[in-house]
């Protein structure tokens, strides 16, 4: 009779070990190569200050990318994140202009921003689950609406004249580490735990893998989708508030084209746009890969037009590596 060997994996050939390494570390390998390369080319690259700088630069989009990972895992997409950065930024900062002390207005500021994120995510999920509209089109529409809303609300002008202490949020440091970097790390740690160890995380993978099978297995798929879009909305709003603080103003044109960077980070990180496959660690590495490319090229004084081309090529090579491992 057939024996059911349940236990260790036997790796049988050299090729398998290689594909195994590639599959787990494919993108990390690309990142490592990039880091070594830039360290050779520029003496300023591999310094504590510059590495912290990279993490600060990527923090805004990386935080959104954590939320986007959840969305993409369910086979969805959220294109409204960039516009949401702007909308939450201008709405939340306008609260700071109220004639009350910052200790009172700051919590209100946070609450406003987060509410905007919750509302946007809820609305996306509502159209997606209730009317069966594809996420792409729903969030494309919301992208346009929120951006227009941000311009309309501010009359096209930034929200200026914010309390000076407010810039601490995006510009402050704790133990030498930028606050946005710390927030980003906290978001990733939490997202990792949620995806790996909670029922909700498991449901996210299941819904993305096969929505109907997940429903028939007893998962409330609509609720999972709602939670996922709300999460992505809230993290976008959080980024919007951090960005506003760094610019010490609420800009209606903030976060333009962020959705592309964010989606690139997730997909470069190994997530499948068809859902069910991907990891939060991968997304982080993906965001780092793009951030390191930009930073390194800047240090090398590469012309910004050429930079764009190179970043595009890096993305192509990274996803190609990822596809090769699946062979």
């Amino acid at each position: 009779m057939v024996s059911s060997v349940v236990g260790v994996d036997f790796m049988t050939s050299r090729k398998n070990i290689l594909s195994r390494i590639l599959s787990q570390y494919g993108i990390s390998l690309a990142l490592l190569i990039e880091i070594i390369l830039f360290s050779r080319l520029s003496p300023f690259f591999f310094t504590t200050e510059n590495i912290l700088n990279v993490t600060l630069q990527i923090s805004i989009t990386a935080i959104i990318a954590a939320g986007m990972t959840f969305v993409i895992l369910t086979a969805g997409i959220d294109l409204s994140v960039g516009a949401l950065v702007a909308l939450s930024g201008v709405l939340a900062t306008s609260v700071l202009k109220l004639p009350i002390p910052l200790i009172y207005s700051f919590p209100l500021f946070l609450a406003t921003g987060i509410l905007v994120g919750v509302f946007s995510g809820w609305l996306s999920a509502f159209f997606i689950t209730r009317f069966n509209v594809t996420p792409f089109i729903v969030t494309l529409a919301l992208m346009s609406i929120w951006r227009g809303g941000a311009y309309l609300y501010t009359g096209g002008r930034p929200v200026w004249g914010l309390p000076h202490a407010f810039s601490m949020l995006g510009g402050g440091r704790v133990a030498g580490i930028p606050l946005p970097t710390l927030i980003m790390l906290a978001v990733y740690a939490a997202a990792y735990i949620v995806l790996q160890y909670t029922r909700f995380g498991r449901h996210v993978y299941a819904v993305g893998g096969n929505q109907e099978a997940a429903r028939l297995a007893g998962i409330n798929t609509k609720r999972v989708l709602r939670q996922v879009y709300i999460l992505c909305g809230v993290l976008s709003a959080l980024s919007g508030m951090l960005l506003a603080s760094r610019m010490n103003s609420g800009q209606p044109n903030a976060g333009l084209m962020y959705e592309l960077d964010v989606i690139a980070a997730v997909v470069v990180g190994g997530a499948s746009l068809f859902g069910g496959r991907g990891s939060i660690v991968g997304t982080f590495v993906g965001a780092m890969l793009i951030g390191v490319s930009r930073n390194g090229l800047n240090l090398l004084n590469v012309n910004s037009y050429i930079q764009q081309i190179i970043v595009g090529l890096v993305i192509l090579v990274a996803v190609m590596l990822d596809q090769m491992r699946k062979r």
């Binding site: 993978y205 893998g209 096969n210 099978a213 069910g276």
Partner: peptide
Amino acid sequence: NRYGLIMEM
């Protein structure tokens, strides 16, 4: 395959 399993899991 269609209604039972989550293939990627």
